[in-house]
Amino acid sequence: MAVETMTIEVAQASAIGFKAIGAGLAVGLAGMGTGLAQLGIGGAAVGATAENKEMFGLALLFTVIPETVVIFGLVIALLLLF
């Protein structure tokens, strides 16, 4: 009986742990994806803005577009946790 209780408790704790790992992976991997995308866009945005100051607004807009990816990750993480 004690062994069975322990198993259920362990399983429940593991489930919470795995959820936390999943949430962490969702945000972390999405963040890396965003970073990779912003590497290129950011480089180009800085280059374009250096040549033409009027490009700043548009360049900033393009740079933040990949942020949506990390927000998707965050949403998945929140759904997992709550």
């Binding site: 374009a48 250096a50 040549e51 490009m55």
Partner: peptide, 16 residues
């Protein structure tokens, strides 16, 4: 290293 320097310099040259 990596692609960033090429992206940066290529964009500047394209604008010019």
């Amino acid at each position: 290293t990596g692609p960033a320097p090429y992206i940066y310099s290529s964009t500047r040259m394209r604008v010019r």
